[in-house]
Nucleic acid binder design. Structure first.
Lengths: 217, 217
DNA sequence: TGTTGTGAATCTCTTCACAGCT
DNA sequence: AGCTGTGAAGAGATTCACAACA
């Protein structure tokens, strides 16, 4: 009935980076910035920056470029849910705990509010200011706290089962760190962070560079 | 002089996933697999799987599909450096240690062999069977141990400096977890894993789904 | 019948190039 | 002179569709 994905996934990813860079500039008192400067900082090109900002309907001025504070605020209001987004994490192992520490207090509108695990030693403890709960309480917690986002940091063999439980509980977006592809209904947005693949890609391109190095230097 | 990037970055990423899935199948005694089955497992499409395998010159048979063991081995010999790839990690904080634990013993041809940090309490200790060394020894270690890959898990404000040091030491591939874009020479392959962006993307698409839910259910 | 391998078509994203503005 | 905003062109990646085959 209505248009879907007005703004592409890639553009959303870059907007997330832009606003982070803009916060840094703002903290340094920077007032204006040109597309080519933001391009350099973000590792992109000037036309790409302009296209991305066009996508959210933001306009700069040919003389001053973009206003840092105003643009930053525009990206925020475009991307953030005004009511905030609450997430939970399932799997309080090494990676899960590191992710929690990493995100703690990073964005005011986006918070991980609880962890889940099936290890009795962890259940009942507090991790990064979040209670670690029994999996049995997942569904009620999601309902009661208005959780819409789930992070999966369990081993591969449990990931699909956890994904199913999250969806059943009502979560509509998942960040999956398990090294498999989840099979979930199409209305659920899943972002896969595949650390093994990332690492192996680097290893491959290191390897494939070897040959050209002979000519290079 | 010669062609660069015969096989695209995206295809390499999927090949990494395919071989992981194939290992699992192999362990279960599976002998053959069709492109559409591998597609389902990898979250892709059958023609895409066939294209990817075409890229590495692998052929199946119309009757039996692909041989699991043989295909797995073909991807290995295509992707892996026969002499193995050694990497180091810089930044032994929560995330760095979790990454080390995650990769430990995952691939025989790809190993993290040392960690680096500037915290005197960590230097000299052992993390996941790796020595944690002083940054001062980075350059000599890279040279002596034949390191070609670096993982960066330091805070944003130190990441560029660390990237420069890695490149200066001779590393040609970097996996960067710091939430900034590194500025490095073009012969160095950099893969950015931007956890903040990944999370914010999920939050955005959760948010943008809200409207269509009204019609959905 | 059901699969692979692949040229051709399609779709998506990026870059070019320039009018319009200051 | 140097920027933004954007139509048009270009590049890349994906999907289609079908010949060849078992």
């Amino acid at each position: 009935m209505e248009t879907r994905e007005l703004v592409s996934e890639k553009t959303i990813g870059r907007l997330s980076l832009y606003r982070r860079l803009l916060s840094g500039l703002l903290a340094k008192g920077r007032q204006n910035i040109y597309s080519h400067e933001l391009a350099t900082l973000s590792g992109g090109t000037a036309p790409q920056v302009r296209r991305d900002l066009m996508a959210i309907g933001y306009s700069g001025s040919p003389s001053k470029g973009y206003e840092v504070a105003d643009l930053s605020e525009s990206i925020n209001s475009f991307m953030d849910n005004p009511d905030g987004t609450r997430g939970i994490i399932v799997g309080a192992g090494n990676l899960g705990r590191a992710i929690m520490a990493y995100f703690e207090g990073r964005r005011p509108k986006l918070k991980i509010v609880a962890a889940f695990d099936n290890d009795p030693n962890k259940i009942g403890s507090e991790i990064c200011n979040c209670p670690c709960c029994d999996m049995a309480y997942l569904k009620t917690t999601v309902a009661q706290m208005g959780i819409s986002l789930g992070v999966i940091t369990v081993p591969a063999n449990r990931a699909q089962e956890v994904g199913d439980k999250l969806v059943d509980a009502g979560v509509t977006g998942i960040l999956n760190f398990a090294p498999i592809r989840l099979h979930l209904p199409p209305n659920v947005y899943v972002e896969h962070v595949d650390l093994t693949t990332s690492m192996e890609k680097v290893a491959y391109f290191v390897q494939s560079n070897k040959d050209s190095d002979v000519a290079g230097a």
